[in-house]
Amino acid sequence: MASSSSSFGTTLSVFLLVLVGMASAQLSSTYYNTSCPNALSTIKSAVDSAVDSESRMGASLLRLQFHDCFVNGCDASVLLDDTSTFTGEKTAAPNNGSIRGFDVIDTIKSNVESICPGVVSCADIVVVAARDSVVALGGPSWTVQLGRRDSTTASLSTANSDIPAPTLNLSGLISSFSNKGFTAKEMVALSGAHTIGQARCTNFRARIYNETNIDSTFASSLQSNCPSTGSDNNLSPLDTTSPTTFDNAYYTNLVNNKGLLHSDQQLYNGGSTDSQVSTYSTSSSTFLTDFANGMVKMGNLSPLTGTSGEIRTNCRKTN
């Protein structure tokens, strides 16, 4: 009996440890309610101010979550600066000279640190700022799960390989998102992030000069700002209809062959996602709901929790 009791005790201890491990890995919408009750309002205030100053910043902060979470999970690795002994992700091809908003994250972090030192992670700031940016530009809100911790590492190679390129065809887009656990439908919904923001000429030049599945007037209007050579960094809105409003116009544009990027128009080009684009183009509420759900799912990609990682004092470097 003694050995049976001992065995039971050991089994119970293991079971309890497993439960604790599972609990620590769970994110919670109320994570900061006690430890930093003003965290979310502080983040929102800074985001609203930044977007008021420059509407494009809303798209930039939204994009930061995407480029962070698609590389080893939502761990704020994208925020880390290179040093003489450390290589981050900022110089990866999808990021170099393209992602922005780091100064806004720095401001948010400083503001939060002033009220709750060492409590709120940079990884959580990124996902909350993305949500608040969408709301600031008229889009949907969603409940952000919290409790992520910050990485002490980054991966330049994964940033280069796992962030979908604007040159991808539909099969490549579906595969890229599938590798992160998203369905084709969720990929189409999340692509709606391109209803705000701008793209550089270098990323759509080939489309407006060489592709045939593009409205000719639309292509001509873009060529004046994006010549066949040079001016690589000239910007054009991803959604020319309502470039600073988070709505479903992106999909209406696709139906009319007015997608800016090659990868955009691939969603409506005689393929398996055409019907989904059509649905979103006629039902704003369906798109907004699906987008919000997709963002929640993206925010849950491989978070560091419990004792993993750290809470950075400065989002640009490890402690």
Rank of each mutant, 00 (worst) to 15 (best):
C201N: 06
C201K: 13
C201P: 02
T202M: 04
N203E: 02
N203R: 03
R205G: 08
R207I: 02
N210Y: 11
N210D: 11
N210V: 09
E211G: 07
E211K: 10
T212V: 13
T212K: 05
N213G: 12
N213S: 12
S216V: 09
S216Y: 14
T217F: 12
F218H: 02
A219T: 10
A219G: 04
S220P: 08
S220G: 14
Q223I: 09
S224H: 00
S224I: 00
N225S: 15
N225F: 01
P227R: 03
P227D: 01
S228F: 14
G230C: 13
S231R: 13
D232E: 12
D232C: 12
P237D: 05
P237A: 02
S242V: 07
S242T: 05
S242C: 10
P243T: 02
T244W: 04
T244Y: 07
T245G: 10
F246I: 07
F246C: 13
D247W: 13
N248C: 14
A249G: 09
Y250P: 00
Y251V: 06
N253Y: 03
V255Y: 10
V255A: 03
N256C: 13
N257F: 04
K258D: 08
L260E: 09
L260T: 05
L260G: 04
L261W: 11
H262Y: 01
S263Q: 06
S263A: 15
D264L: 04
D264T: 02
D264M: 05
Q266V: 10
Q266D: 08
L267K: 08
L267Y: 00
